[in-house]
Amino acid sequence: MKTANQWNIVCTVDDLVPESGIAVWTPDGPVAIFYIPYRLPALFAISHTDPFSGTNVLARGITGDLKGEPVVASPLYKQHFSLVTGQCLENEDVKVKTYRVLLDGNAVRLEIRTASFEAVAA
């Protein structure tokens, strides 16, 4: 099995809300895209699923900065997740998946790893 990277268009710049997140559906499941215009990079993407509750709510969390680290606070139990690494700041054993994201003209693209299968000669 080989893996490949695929850059999917998930939304446009017009869909983004400054200092907030939006949820998008991808082949990898729900992803939260955050737009923090005063930071470089300004776009961040993490799993939309809160690992403590199992619900898709992280895009609705409050963004902020803890000791220079851009974070989102889960709207349910208030844990903070790094927008750079996905690490939960209150529990070192918990981490959400992060994604590479970029702006391509007006399109926001998200990198999704896909698996492809090779036929094996018998």
Rank of each mutant, 00 (worst) to 15 (best):
M1P: 07
K2G: 02
N5Q: 09
N5K: 11
Q6V: 15
Q6A: 15
W7S: 15
W7C: 13
N8T: 09
V10S: 14
C11Q: 06
C11D: 05
T12M: 05
T12H: 12
V13Q: 11
V13M: 14
V13R: 10
D15M: 10
L16Y: 09
L16R: 04
V17N: 07
V17D: 00
V17A: 03
S20Y: 02
S20V: 01
S20T: 03
I22M: 12
V24I: 08
T26S: 13
P27N: 04
G29C: 09
P30G: 10
P30E: 13
V31Q: 14
A32P: 01
I33R: 10
F34V: 09
I36Y: 12
P37L: 04
Y38G: 03
Y38M: 06
R39L: 14
R39M: 10
L40C: 06
L40G: 03
A42L: 00
L43M: 05
F44V: 01
F44D: 02
F44R: 06
I46P: 05
I46W: 00
T49G: 02
D50N: 11
P51R: 07
F52I: 00
F52T: 06
F52H: 08
S53F: 01
S53Y: 03
S53T: 10
S53I: 06
G54C: 09
G54R: 06
T55I: 11
T55R: 14
T55S: 11
T55K: 11
T55Q: 12
N56W: 01
N56Y: 04
N56L: 02
V57S: 09
V57W: 00
L58D: 09
A59S: 10
R60K: 15
R60L: 13
R60E: 15
G61A: 05
G61C: 02
G64C: 06
G64I: 02
L66D: 01
K67R: 12
K67E: 08
E69W: 00
E69D: 11
E69G: 00
P70I: 00
V71S: 02
V71N: 00
V72M: 07
A73H: 04
S74I: 08
S74M: 06
L76M: 15
L76P: 07
L76H: 15
Y77D: 06
K78I: 09
K78S: 09
H80S: 07
H80L: 13
F81M: 02
S82A: 02
L83C: 06
L83Q: 05
T85L: 09
G86W: 01
Q87V: 04
C88G: 04
C88I: 06
L89C: 09
L89R: 00
D93C: 03
V94D: 11
V94A: 11
V94W: 08
V96N: 12
V96F: 12
K97W: 05
K97D: 11
T98R: 06
T98F: 01
R100E: 12
R100W: 05
R100Y: 08
V101F: 10
V101T: 14
V101E: 03
L103I: 13
D104K: 13
D104T: 14
A107T: 09
L110G: 12
E111I: 01
I112K: 00
R113Q: 10
T114H: 07
A119I: 13
A119T: 10
V120A: 15
A121P: 03
A122M: 03
A122R: 12
